[in-house]
Design a protein around this nucleic acid. Structure first.
Length: 803
RNA sequence: GCCGCUGUGGCGAAAUUGGUAAACGCACACGACUCAAAAUCGUGCGGGAAACCUUGUCGGUUCGAGUCCGACCAGCGGCACCA
């Protein structure tokens, strides 16, 4: 008879509604276990969402049983493009669809039976919430970290809005995969670059996947080098170049400016002017993608006709313009050392420019077939620097250049400031008023939240202007400073704004006066474990670290890293190994699985499917295995609930090794093998019970407790068969004694020359020599030759080396 | 191109620090129960008759390698003219 999961799950769900299993107590240690809150789409949750939520719930419940007070909230990241696009398509206002979707998500989420504290629920589109998102923006503005700038930004022609660098993937819009173009727009920017160094350093102390740390490190892209000044021959101008290899300065044979460089036209000679103008004009029309897709072989460039003076040796070298030099990195100009840089080498070959070797492995000049970029060798053709080791010189050159007065040590980052305005409707209004007299003025704090006006028409204009610009009644206002007629900022914030800090607000969502109270922040933050997909590695996770560091700087928080440990769960793929999506028609709805097998089975299967950090294919058949297992557990309890025997050597061993196995596997996040462990030990317990005609009651009790984080309903039911406390979660996580996790008699494999030949059963308490003797006797006939060595690894293996 | 991850039965996978490769489960086969089927329970299940062989390929270190080292191959992911 299969166990009645419907009745059991219903029963305990209503019990938990009344009886809190996660009781707050001042003396308890806190544990903040956070899920990346979902964006409430119209299509609802699928089994992929469940994976992360189950993991976080298991860890939460495990920590409750370890005696901690667990903070485990849930909310909704509801602003943003998808909601707006969906609303436009359906002709329903996003505020309505968002509310409907959230209601649906909440119902679905409750089916997971996660111990979310629904009193903490929030959503980013609630004015009471985004009041504080706006407030943080205002603080940033006050500190000079939010500023306006007009420049060619990434523009998605399909989403009709500007994008941050982080939102451009492979030259395409992160959201809709349309090729991104450039558009000159006045934008609100956040100075994340001010935090580049701290964002980099902070990674060291985080317990995050190396992959994510690496992605952020590379995104921040720190490099150490020098700026060197090159005078322009015949002009009263100098070109600053940035190089990471000042040691190769003697090998610089030309200088290249980016087409956008301010000196490009100025230093071009008359004869070359028309050609150069044409080249610069063409570069302007090349989108980023075009510029990137040009392979190394097809470098383009044009000679200006002018020459620069290499400051280290006063040699005249030509100045070129080429679009492979980026205008917004370093100084927008480079010195080229073709002998030791692959790109410069190709450029020099193509345009027949001189190549001077300055580093040599052998110490003499060689015939270079390609750039020699290894950091190995000594300097040649380098004046005073000749004979010095390249690694040593590379480290010291920035300082030596500084002494010579021709440049200085410089650090550069690839990270750019965050383009923060969106030309779309469904986002937080930026609380700024443009006044002719006073310039940019903040909406006064007591007027926050600045609410998004409810309007009928909110389609994106595509012109670079926000749809809010059309609402005269909203746009026109008085300047809070001087009282004159003024206009509101009409751009909105990007989706990422609300998610930068939501985990703070869960803890104090009704606080009218502060973003979060000092006491609560101190008591419950930071987040101990953050679980979500890897796709936010350089988006949400970077932005959020930035905001938290800022809030730390202005004294709101006393920590500066939001998430101590990060775990990225793998994706759930369709049965054929491809992404679950509506268009593929392979989306598995968890509600149906719950209906068919119950919540506990689905929870267990989500973990059993494979290592939690790897992608896994959904396999309908695999669920049956978990379902059968839970039935067998139920039957074991049913059959033996009043047939108890006293504990014996074997039951003590089983119990201790079981607790050890499950605990260790949870601790190292090997949740798939926890489920395997349950199955394996369940089989052992059944065997034990059959053999002994009964079971050790402690075995059943501990089984129910260990199972509770994973399959809470059935565990609660089973627990009540063997105990009379109110809830299994009032128990403590069982402990074990190491010495009791071992059997006295073990089977020892005996090898000859590393190949297993026989097994012996021995008492581990015997002396080593005695065990080896037994082994030697057991294997006597199989030995052909003399034993030259005996290796005994305690309780593991015996190997005889025979010759 | 550079960096990272992964590669183990028909399938999902296991094997903390080198120590019985394939635990646990799926699928499959046979048996028990049944008039029969489903469910359940039991047995078997990498290859080979066996000696033995087997963790992507080739080599190395070691008494002993899925695990460590070197070279390569394949798949996935990240970065991609950042000077």
């Amino acid at each position: 008879m299969p166990y009645n999961f419907r009745e059991i799950e219903k029963k305990w769900n209503s019990f938990w509604d009344e009886y809190s299993v996660n009781k707050y107590d001042e003396n308890k240690e806190k544990y903040y276990c956070l899920d990346m809150f979902p964006y409430p789409s119209g299509s609802g949750l699928h089994v992929g969402h469940w994976r992360g939520y189950v993991i976080s719930d298991v860890i939460s419940r495990y920590n409750i049983l370890k005696g901690k007070y667990v903070i485990h909230p849930m909310g909704f990241d509801a602003f943003g493009l998808p909601a707006e696009n969906y609303a436009i398509k359906m002709g329903i206002h996003p505020s309505i669809t968002t509310k409907e979707n959230i209601d649906n998500f909440r119902v679905q989420l409750k089916k997971i039976s996660a111990i979310y504290d629904w009193d903490m629920e929030l959503n980013t589109t609630d004015p009471e919430y985004y009041k504080w998102t706006q407030w943080i923006f205002e603080k940033m503005f006050e500190k000079g970290l939010a500023y306006e700038k007009e420049f060619p930004i990434n523009w998605c022609p399909s989403c009709k809005t500007g994008l941050a660098n982080e939102e451009v993937v492979d030259g395409k819009c992160e959201r809709c995969h349309t090729v991104v173009t450039k558009k000159n727009l006045k934008q609100w920017m956040l100075k994340i670059t001010d935090y580049a160094e701290r964002l980099l350093e902070g990674l060291d102390k985080l317990d995050w996947p190396e992959k994510v740390k690496k992605m952020q490190t590379e995104w921040i892209g720190k490099s150490v080098g020098a700026e060197v000044d090159f005078l322009v021959d015949g002009f009263d101008e100098k070109i600053k170049v940035y190089t990471t290899r000042p040691d190769t300065l003697h090998g610089a044979t030309f200088v290249v400016l980016s087409p956008e460089h301010k000196l490009s036209l100025k230093i071009t000679t008359k004869e070359n002017l028309s050609k150069v103008e044409k080249y610069i004009e063409e570069a302007k029309f090349k989108s980023n993608v075009d510029r990137m897709s040009v392979s190394d072989k097809e470098k383009t460039g044009i000679f200006t006709g002018s020459f620069a003076i290499n400051p280290i040796n006063n040699k005249k070298i030509p100045i070129w313009i080429a679009d492979y030099v980026l205008s917004d990195y370093g100084t927008g100009a480079i010195m080229c050392v073709p002998a030791h840089d692959f790109r410069d080498f190709l450029f020099a070959k193509k345009f027949d420019l001189p190549i001077i070797q300055v580093i040599s492995k052998s110490g003499v000049e060689e015939d270079l077939k390609e750039a020699y970029a290894d950091l190995c060798g000594v300097m040649i053709n380098s004046g005073d620097w000749n004979g010095r080791d390249v690694v040593e010189l590379k480290n010291n050159a920035p300082y030596e250049i500084e002494k010579l007065g021709i440049g200085k040590k410089t650090i550069n980052y690839k990270l750019r400031d965050w383009v923060f305005s969106r030309q779309r409707y469904w986002g937080e209004p930026i609380p700024i008023i443009h006044c002719k007299n006073c310039g940019e003025v903040l909406v006064p704090e007591n007027e926050l939240p600045l609410e998004l006006p409810l309007v009928k028409s909110y389609e994106p204009t595509g012109t670079g202007e926000s749809p809010l610009a059309k609402i005269d009644s909203w746009v026109n206002c008085k300047c809070p400073k001087c009282g004159m007629d003024a206009k509101r900022e009409t751009n909105t914030m990007p989706q990422w704004a609300g998610s930068c800090w939501y985990f703070l607000r869960y803890l104090d969502k009704n606080n009218k006066n502060e973003l979060i109270s000092k006491e609560k922040a101190k008591k419950f933050l930071p987040v101990d474990l953050y679980i979500g997909g890897v796709e936010h590695a350089v988006l949400h996770l970077l932005y959020s670290r930035f905001w938290i560091k800022f809030l730390n700087d202005i004294g709101i928080l006393d920590f500066d890293e939001p998430f101590i440990k990060l775990f990225n769960q793998g994706m759930i793929l369709g049965p054929k190994g491809n992404k679950m999506s509506k268009s593929e028609g392979n989306v598995v709805n968890p509600d149906e699985v719950v209906e068919h097998y119950g919540c506990d089975t689905l929870r267990m299967y989500e973990l059993f499917i494979g290592p939690p950090e790897l992608d896994a294919s959904w396999d309908e058949n695999g669920i049956d295995g978990v379902y059968r297992f839970l039935n067998r557990v139920y039957n074991l309890f049913e059959e033996y609930r009043d047939k108890y025997i006293k504990e014996n050597e074997e039951s003590v061993y089983l119990r201790n090794s079981f607790i050890k196995a499950i605990t260790e596997r949870i601790e190292r996040f090997s949740l798939n093998t926890v489920i395997s462990g349950f199955m394996e030990y369940n089989n052992s317990f059944i065997e034990f019970a059959k053999k002994n005609g009964g079971i050790d009651k402690n075995l059943l009790k501990d089984f129910a407790i260990l199972l509770a984080p994973f399959a809470p309903h059935i565990a609660e039911e089973l627990y009540h068969m063997v105990s009379d406390k109110k809830s299994v979660f009032d128990e403590k996580w069982p402990t074990y004694k190491e010495e009791l996790t071992k059997k006295n008699k073990i089977t020892l494999p005996i090898q000859i020359n590393g190949k297993t030949k026989v097994f012996i059963d021995v008492d581990i308490n015997l002396q080593d020599q005695e065990i080896i003797k037994i082994a030697r006797d057991a294997i006597k006939e199989k030995i052909a030759g003399n034993i030259v060595k005996e290796i005994y690894v305690k309780e593991k293996i015996i190997n005889f080396v025979v010759k």
